[in-house]
Every structure is written in C-alpha cells, then in structure tokens.
Amino acid sequence: MEDNSKVPENANENCPGLGSSNAGKESSCAGCPNQSACASGEAAKEDPAVAEVAAKLSNVKHIILVLSGKGGVGKSTVSSQLAQTLAMDDELNIGLLDIDICGPSAPRMMGLEGQEIHQSNEGWSPVYVEDNLAVMSVGFLLPSKNDAIIWRGPRKNGLIMQFLTDVVWDSLDYLIIDTPPGTSDEHISIIKYLKSANVAGAVVVTTPQEVALLDVRKELSFCAKTETPVLGVVENMSGFICPKCSHESQIFKPVSGGAEAMCDELGYELLGKIPLDPDVLMATEGGKCFYREKPESLTSTAFKNIVDKIVDKCNSEVKEDAEMS
C-alpha cells in the first residue's frame, strides 16, 4: 500500500502524496503548483527548517495542537483553559503558542492585553502569566488590538517559522498550540515544521450540531493525511446546565448523535463534553483559569477529566517510546 499521507503545501484536494510513485503524474495532479516538483522528486526532499525547529524545541516534552474544522466552536477557549489548568501544577512548565494570525485570542483570554514581547540577542521572550506559564501570540506584535492583519500565505508561514525558532521558551513540559479553524496554510506549515519535534498529538474541538461536525470530519481527515496523531475529540457547548436546578437543556441539539456518534463511527476517542456555561465565558473574558475559579462546578469537573485524559495519553506515549528504545 502506497504512503499517501504526506501532502505538499498548496496541493490539490486529491493529492496522491509525496510517498506515492505516481506523485505529480496522476490526473488529480493536473494544474497543481507542486506538480513538477513532485514528479521530479524535489518536493519530497526534507526541508532544512524541520531539523532547525526540532533542535529549537528539543526542550519541550509534549507539543499539543488544538484544532477545529470550524470557527466559533471554542477552540481558543479550550487552548487557554488547558494551558491554565495544567499550570496549576507548580512543577510543570507550560507554554501557549497562538498561531491564529488573523484572529489572535490568547492575549485577551490569558489576561495579557496590552503586553509586549521583548527581543534580545537570543530571540523573542514570551509573555508570562505566571512563573510557569508563558504565552506567545501575534497579538503582542500589533500596535492596536483593533488592527487587522491582511497577509498572504507566505508571510503567515514566515511568522509561524519565527515563532517556532526565535521564541526563547524555558524547558517546557507542555506546549499548547492554538491554531486557526480549517486546514489551510497555517496548518500545513505547522505540521511540516513540527515533523521531527515531540508532537504528542492533536485535540480536535467541535460543538454538537451537524454543521460543525461536517467540518471537524475534514479536520480529522487532514490529521490522517498528514500523519498527525489525534489524542481525541472534545465536544464543547454540549448542553446547558441550569446553575439553579441543574437541569440540562440541549441548546445545540446533536441531531446526528453529536461528537460521540462521530467518534464511534470514525474510531476516535471522545475525551469529554464541556457544557455551555456562562461562567466559562466570564473566566475567559477575564483571563482567569475557570477550574481555579469554580473547582466544584459540573463544568470544571468535565474539563478537568479531559485534561487528565490528555496528560495520561502524553505520559503513556512517553512510556511506550522508552520501552521501545
């Protein structure tokens, strides 16, 4: 069976992949900007940036990508709260990298609006929320939070490369990477550059309704094609639990069975369901750790269970690698 999982940047939808003997030669390759390079074998050559990124991030134990196929499902909320919840353990060092170039949310959600990064001879210093929690985002580079970033793909890719090679992280236990929705330039670049780094896998975020699940299926397909491990799926805004009577209502009704049915069908693990909770909104708007603020709530319990599963998966992966070596 041919390896069709490695897909070059800007490839056509039905790309056979760099590992295929038909790379650049199939009918689906017609009109693709990579056709000549694939047919000659040039596209399959290792980008030297891959080794550079791996060396720069060698002090990061676990890299976790937070993905979604659709905007508005709470991906940045999950990213920021995951980082803050992990950082509650003082023995862990956590980094949050926001590569949503056109819609950076990390400065607001981490309570860091108005902060600036500092540059030294070593590179860019991230902004610290706490001694063990550092954040990097393009939002720190903008003169005003209202400024729009109107960039084409190559410039976005260049900034992502800078984030991966020029940011001076301390030794990190977890680096959470908050990505934009979709499967476009930023995703292709981050997967390519992290090829030889310690990527634990992706956490894919969705909401229960079918219109979101349709796009999340594409995101899971992207992960399969790019050989990105999937740690599991999180269903966000999964029902509303009344804070007074604890009755649950389905605001976004899972007409097709929601993330649970999708995971059963496709063979992925459902890490958990996070209820629609106004207190989560208030925590993220204020840059607070929700679990720290409301540790006894049902939503906190659900989220902490998800975080524990992610940690267990990362630790078991390290154990398996040690046993194999």
Rank of each mutant, 00 (worst) to 15 (best):
G158T: 12
D166T: 14
I117T: 15
S137D: 00
N157P: 04
K145G: 01
G72K: 08
P107N: 01
S105R: 00
H118R: 10
K145F: 02
S171A: 15
G72I: 07
M136Q: 07
G95L: 09
D89Y: 07
I101K: 13
S105E: 00
P107I: 10
G72H: 05
M161F: 12
Y128L: 09
W169P: 11
W169R: 09
L112P: 04
V66M: 06
D89M: 02
M110L: 08
P143G: 09
Q115L: 04
P104I: 07
G158H: 15
M161T: 11
Q119L: 07
L82F: 10
I149Y: 07
S137M: 00
G153F: 02
E91T: 13
G111D: 13
S76T: 04
S125F: 12
A106W: 07
N132S: 09
E130M: 13
L112C: 11
I63F: 09
S137P: 00
D147C: 09
I64Q: 05
S76D: 00
L96A: 15
F163H: 04
P154W: 10
R155G: 02
G72C: 06
L141E: 03
G71P: 02
L82S: 07
E130T: 15
L172V: 14
G95Y: 12
E91P: 01
I99L: 00
M161L: 15
K70V: 00
S79L: 03
S137F: 00
G139Q: 08
C102G: 05
S120T: 15
Q81M: 03
D98T: 04
Q162H: 11
E122T: 02
L142M: 15
A134D: 01
I99N: 00
Q119C: 02
C102P: 04
E113C: 05
G153C: 05
I117H: 05
T165Y: 05
W169S: 08
S144P: 03
F163Q: 06
D131V: 10
H62I: 04
V78H: 09
M109F: 06
S125T: 10
R108S: 08
A106H: 14
M136C: 03
E116I: 12
M136H: 11
K145N: 12
W151F: 05
A148W: 07
D131L: 12
I63H: 15
V66F: 02
K156I: 14
V135Q: 06
H62F: 13
G71H: 05
L96N: 12
W169C: 10
M109E: 00
Q115T: 03
V135C: 08
D166E: 14
